[in-house]
């Protein structure tokens, strides 16, 4: 077992087989730097719980393919990314820091899927981004690719 400590001082025990999906921790273990608790100053406990949930589920990725549990894993992934933007960004930052490739891919794909076909206004509202472009600058971008800003598929809702 490997002990991880979040930045709000909570400790979690994780199986080594699960935790080595993190390239960073794998390297630490290999270098013999993981003898006691591994502090993770960039990750809070709420996010770390999510990450560990993912690591535990994906512990036997190779086996899943053999035993036909792929669908189960797919369903888990779909449920897993069903979270708010802020939480998603927290998990992305954690996956980036811990260097967990599959988790990073999953979350970035989810972010891209959420942005797909969204109107500019909807993106601003969803992500709480203030528009600092002048009207002319914005129009210039629209003029360069008008087809990207019109059509029935453009979604103006913010869910």
């Amino acid at each position: 077992m490997v002990k991880l400590k979040s930045n709000d001082d909570k400790e979690f025990e994780v199986e080594e087989a699960a935790v080595i999906q993190s390239e960073m921790i794998k390297n630490m273990i290999e270098d013999g730097c993981a003898t006691s608790v591994i502090p993770l100053p960039n990750i809070d406990s709420k996010t770390l719980i999510k990450v560990i949930e993912y690591l535990n589920k994906h512990i036997n990725m190779g086996k899943a393919a053999e035993t036909g549990e792929e669908d189960d894993l797919k369903e888990f992934d779909e449920q897993f990314v069903n979270m708010g933007w802020e939480e998603l960004f927290d998990v992305i930052m954690a996956a980036n820091y811990l260097n967990i490739h599959e988790l990073m891919e999953l979350c970035c794909q989810s972010a891209a899927d959420r942005l797909k076909n969204k109107s500019v206004r909807a993106v601003r509202e969803m992500l709480k981004i203030t528009n600092d472009l002048t009207e002319e600058e914005e129009q210039e971008i629209i003029n360069d690719a008008p087809w990207a800003f019109e059509g029935p598929e453009i979604d103006d809702t913010v869910n």
């Binding site: 960004f89 970035c108 891209a112 990207a148």
Partner: peptide, 28 residues
Amino acid sequence: LLDLPDLTLECIFERLTPDGLCSMAAVC
């Protein structure tokens, strides 16, 4: 979104279609 490191942002944006990238470019 804008707080994410550049490489991470790229990881998201490289999954967008050309139309998606144009639309995002008009956000800010």
